Amino acid sequence: MGLFKRNPFGHNLFMKRWLIRILGLMTHSRYKGFNSLQIEGSDIVRSLPENNVLFVSNHQTYFADVVAMLHVFYASLAGREDSIKNVGYLWNPKLNIYYVAAKETMSKSLLTRLLAYAGSISIERTWRADGKDVNRQVKMSDITNIGTALDDGWVITFPQGTTRPWKPLRKGTAHIIKNYKPIVVPVVIDGFRRSFDRKGLYIKKKGILQSIQIKEPLEIDYEKESVADIIEKLEYAIEQHPSFLKVIPQEELAAYEEDHRKREWRY
């Protein structure tokens, strides 16, 4: 790789490779050390094409979720079987993996800017800004950037747009799916809100079992299925459909809401 080669967003790939290596080494023990990470679906990751893949996941922290997924993807592509053992997989990471994140979040500090350089597609949220509810139009440049990332490689998105569970999925994800026709891979995560603070930067509790389940790609009729159909299919796939609430004890839900309220990040 040349020293000056860049991706479609102008990021120097030599710098990005070393940034991923350094951040990967710094964060590895958060998932295999202080806590443990149970993985399912490494074989699915290895079966995917080089580009136009959209990973759709539930969300529990701002950063710990996506960093864990990147570890799992890099390790799976390097031949690890449902494991992130031996960080040698960081030496040659897949450089065209991107993740969708709020622009205001990714510009908060030097650390978030480094995380953004490692692969963020920063977008302006249409429903929230500076800790307040807003209602603004989707920026077409944001949609175009996601399409550019899909054309170049893989994209991770969290369609609920919040770390709170059971919230409705944003319709924009379904529009992107209908427009760009990617392979859609559901991911279900758990354990991150118990082990990290809401931002996912600080370890709150050690010895927690975290999990990442990568499911088989969804079968989607891009032409015939409506936005509502796709949204419902995604809700079931990432286990965030309202019907899942029926099998969770109310005491557990109440305890989670109280814990979440105490940890809420104020802007």
Rank of each mutant, 00 (worst) to 15 (best):
D130F: 10
Y202D: 10
A149W: 01
R194I: 03
R6D: 04
E219H: 09
N135M: 14
G131N: 09
D152L: 01
S109F: 06
L253W: 06
S211F: 00
L110I: 14
R194C: 12
P242K: 04
R46A: 10
G41V: 00
E258C: 08
N12D: 10
I22T: 15
P217F: 00
S76L: 03
D133A: 10
S141C: 08
A228R: 13
G79N: 03
S42G: 00
I231A: 05
E264P: 00
Y62P: 08
K178S: 03
P242D: 03
D197K: 08
N86S: 12
K32F: 14
R193Y: 12
V72H: 00
L209W: 07
N7F: 04
E50D: 13
D190G: 12
N96I: 05
V56N: 04
S122V: 03
G172W: 03
K181N: 11
P186R: 03
K171H: 09
A129S: 15
P182H: 01
F55E: 02
I123S: 06
F244R: 12
L111Y: 09
S29K: 14
L218M: 07
Q210K: 08
L90N: 06
S243F: 11
F192A: 01
L54H: 02
A237I: 09
D130L: 11
I177E: 00
I176K: 02
F34M: 14
G119V: 07
R113V: 12
F244G: 08
A254G: 03
T157M: 13
Y62H: 14
H260D: 15
E232G: 12
A78M: 11
W127P: 00
F196Y: 10
R30A: 14
N92M: 12
G24P: 01
E251T: 15
L169N: 04
R17S: 07
A255H: 11
E40H: 07
K85D: 13
E264G: 03
D142G: 02
L245C: 05
P242Y: 06
G33K: 01
G161F: 04
K132T: 13
I203D: 08
K199A: 12
D190F: 04
G147S: 00
A174W: 05
K167Y: 11
P8G: 09
V227G: 03
L110N: 08
A129W: 14
K224C: 06
Q60T: 02
